[in-house]
């Protein structure tokens, strides 16, 4: 019971912890770039504080940013918790929709939405900063997009874990060891998730030291593509989208059911046995926002040059 709870928790809740970490790192990066562009000493000081406080928790670091504050995380988690409860309660009824394919269709739409909002967050982070921070409306939009990502990831992944807990409580077992196993599993699993999230955040903080560095935004994009692939696999599962034979298998190198496999699957949608269609979608899902991002940057530079010569 203990190991199984830890595994289910890792599978369900690690994406939530990772997305919080990635969004916080992205916010910090935006703050750093903003200070470099505007020469704002207060912001630079705040960013400096975040960079040097090794013992600072992820949540405390968020207090310094504009978009994701501790209050935002708590409020979003509260709403997400209600959605999770509703989803897990209505799961049996939802599964009966669309001739038994209800859950797959609904969840693939939600995965698609996560990817859509992550693209928006990515494109905003690629937008030239002088424009972005002069326009408070964009900052407000950015804030809403981040909250939407958090809410969706929490709802989708949290509902599976909530359903697992709900299913366990319906079984007739000896109460004391049963609940002790679950509680211990939740504590250990949460500890592992939190450790990975903090390590990722500090890794990004170390890598993203330059204002021009955008590792956090690229990792967030890869996370979004991973979510899209999960949605795609759900549609393949119910034969809505055609699936082809596997192109290769890297199971002997990194198995999907290994610890590293779990982590990589969640982080960037690692797939040991991809099909041609999955590979095509994966590459397109990365290249499309990258091209749009480059186009936006090019357009801005072109406009700046034209204005300068005039």
């Amino acid at each position: 019971m203990l190991i199984n709870t830890v595994l289910v928790l890792l599978q369900s809740l690690l994406p939530i912890f990772l997305v919080v970490s990635l969004l916080l790192a992205l916010q910090r990066q935006n703050l750093l770039t903003r200070s470099a562009n505007t020469g704002d000493e207060t912001i630079a000081k705040q960013t400096e504080q975040v960079s040097h406080l090794d013992d600072l928790s992820v949540i405390s670091a968020a207090k310094l940013t504009n978009s994701i504050t501790l209050a935002n995380v708590i409020n979003t988690s509260f709403f997400a918790f209600i959605i999770v409860c509703l989803l897990s309660y209505y799961m049996p009824s939802l599964s009966q929709l669309f001739t038994g394919n209800g859950l797959e269709i609904i969840f693939s739409i939600l995965f698609g939405l996560i990817y859509g909002f992550i693209i928006l967050a990515f494109l905003i982070s690629q937008k030239p900063l002088i424009n972005r921070h002069k326009d408070s409306r964009v900052t407000w939009q950015n804030s809403l997009i981040n909250i939407a990502i958090l809410l969706l990831v929490f709802s989708v992944h949290g509902s599976y874990f909530s359903f697992y807990l709900k299913s366990l409580t319906t079984q007739s077992m000896s109460i004391t060891p049963f609940y002790a196993g679950i509680v211990m599993g939740i504590i250990i699993g949460t500890g592992i998730c939190l450790s990975i999230a903090i390590l990722l955040y500090f890794f990004l903080m170390t890598v993203d030291k330059k204002p021009t560095s955008k590792v956090a935004s690229y990792l967030l994009l890869l996370f979004g593509v991973g979510q899209l692939m999960q949605g795609l696999q759900l549609l393949e599962q119910v034969d809505i989208i055609a699936s082809n034979s596997h192109l290769w298998s890297t199971s002997y190198l990194i198995s999907e059911d290994s610890e590293l496999g779990y982590f990589l699957t969640i982080l960037f949608g690692y797939e040991a046995t991809p099909s041609a269609m999955e590979l095509a979608v994966y590459i397109s899902a990365i290249l499309l926002p990258l091209s749009v991002g480059k186009f936006i940057t090019y357009k801005h530079h072109h406009a700046t040059l034209t204005n300068g010569t005039e």
């Binding site: 599962q237 119910v238 699936s243 046995t273």
Partner: peptide
């Protein structure tokens, strides 16, 4: 993991999934 399939099976209900084509 090897089939890339994950499906919740509700009590006293039937669930349908599609598998393959596989080597």
């Amino acid at each position: 993991f090897s089939l890339n399939r994950e499906k919740v099976l509700f009590p006293q209900q039937q669930a349908i999934i599609y598998i393959g084509p596989l080597p």
